[in-house]
């Protein structure tokens, strides 16, 4: 096992650099050490000016997406010795502007995300704002979109997408997968409103299934699959072949439901 790995880190300070450059640091590694640990070692011991974004350190928050040896992934759940033997290149996520060093500007992604209305859209808005009941949804109906809810908005899929590399206006895998997540939700009635964007010339049909988004996704969301479902629905809607379904109805108000006979009642309140 090598005692040290060369970290080739992209550096860029907007106040003094014209363009990014690569600086090499020698980092002692041990088994189980993540790339994020390595960056912390550099900051603590070698170069305190290095900047990157991170928060949870456990693959949940999606802050530390980076390009590691040419692959977009999370620094916190990538072990150094799993991807490097002597050298490791660490760069910011491509297809995003660089703010500083390894910090990408994710604003463009979030703007595209907001544009697809990533929330339940219903005619009865009052019910959404001030809920007075529960919507019925079967486990099978939940299964139609559950996979796409695990997205942590890390931006790895956007960085890996070759279409996004040449078309800045393309919505990209994350927002389109979010659109499918809500389109497939039986509580939602906003699919036709979303079709305006997802069916546009920079929408779902710009995807040609390179599959990189699904390959790099650290949470197994499979955005490429979601986009193909989105396309099928767009085609059916365009041809007027889609069944017109009403969003699922409200069942009953809080506390008004009838408990099933085989469920033990909740213990009495103690406070």
């Amino acid at each position: 096992m090598p005692a040290e790995i060369n970290f080739h880190v992209t550096r860029y300070n907007p106040e003094c650099d014209q363009a990014p450059y690569v600086k090499t640091y020698r980092v002692p590694v041990r088994e189980g050490m993540t790339v994020l640990d390595g960056l912390h070692y550099i900051k603590d011991n070698l170069d305190s000016s290095l900047a990157w974004r991170y928060s949870c350190r456990m693959g949940v928050c999606g802050s530390c997406g980076m390009l590691l040896n040419g692959r977009a992934t999370l620094a916190c759940n990538t072990q150094i010795l799993h991807i490097a033997t002597t050298d490791l290149t660490v760069g910011p996520l491509p297809n995003f502007d660089i703010i500083r060093d390894l910090v990408p500007d994710l604003l463009t992604m979030f703007e595209k995300h907001v544009a697809v209305k990533p929330y339940i859209v219903r005619a009865d808005e009052a019910e959404l704002d001030d809920p007075a009941g529960e919507f019925y949804q079967s486990p099978e109906e939940l299964g139609a979109y559950l996979q796409f809810t695990y997205c942590i908005k890390c931006g790895c899929c956007m960085a890996a997408c070759p279409t996004l590399a040449t078309d800045a206006r393309y919505s990209g895998p994350m927002p389109l997968a979010a659109a499918q997540r809500y389109n497939a939700d039986t509580r939602d009635d906003g699919r036709r409103a979303r079709n305006q964007l997802t069916g546009s010339s920079h929408g779902a049909f710009r995807c040609h299934y390179a599959g990189e988004c699904s390959r790099v996704c650290p949470k197994g969301v499979d955005p490429a699959k979601a986009i193909q479902y989105l396309k099928r629905q767009l085609v059916l809607d365009y041809l007027h072949l889609a069944r017109r379904k009403k969003p699922c109805a409200k069942m009953h108000g809080p506390g008004q439901g009838k408990p099933l006979a085989n469920i033990t009642p909740a213990p009495a309140k103690t406070v």
């Binding site: 860029y12 907007p14 106040e15 363009a19 990014p20 910011p92 996520l93 491509p94 297809n95 995003f96 502007d97 660089i98 703010i99 990408p104 500007d105 070759p162 590399a165 800045a168």
Partner: peptide, 8 residues
Amino acid sequence: IKRHDNRL
């Protein structure tokens, strides 16, 4: 804030 275009 000045940014560097990193589109591939």
